[in-house]
């Protein structure tokens, strides 16, 4: 797989470390309760088709990306910097 990095252009996926579903950006507030944290840590939608997921460019510029990828074909549909996604969702960084 080739991941089109928003800053660095096309990079081989083997330069990256995979974390998982991009919903991991949305950590619940500390007071959200045990159910919210259980769902955040353990439960996944795991869709067949478009999947938004976090990749870390470890052997590169060490930025986190949100990659939208089709899990049936491995086609990459969109790539954004995770910090842009997090800021849009109201996070400070």
């Amino acid at each position: 797989m080739i991941i089109p990095h928003p800053l660095l252009g096309p990079r081989d996926a083997s330069e990256f470390v995979y974390l998982g579903d991009a919903s991991l950006i949305d950590r619940p507030a500390p007071e959200a309760g045990i159910d919210a944290f259980h769902d955040y840590v353990y439960q996944r939608d795991n869709p067949a088709g478009a999947h938004r997921e976090l990749w870390f460019h470890e052997h590169g510029d060490r930025s986190w990306l949100v990659v939208t990828r089709n899990t049936l074909t491995h086609e990459i549909l969109a790539v954004e910097l995770a910090k842009d996604v997090a800021r849009r969702r109201g996070r400070g960084r």
């Binding site: 998982g20 439960q43 996944r44 939608d45 795991n46 869709p47 067949a48």
Partner: peptide
């Protein structure tokens, strides 16, 4: 392999990734 897809039809989310 397809557990999440099938169980989603029953409204359940699973602690599983494929």
């Amino acid at each position: 392999g397809s557990s999440s897809r099938v169980m989603a039809m029953a409204g359940l989310r699973l602690p599983i990734e494929s």
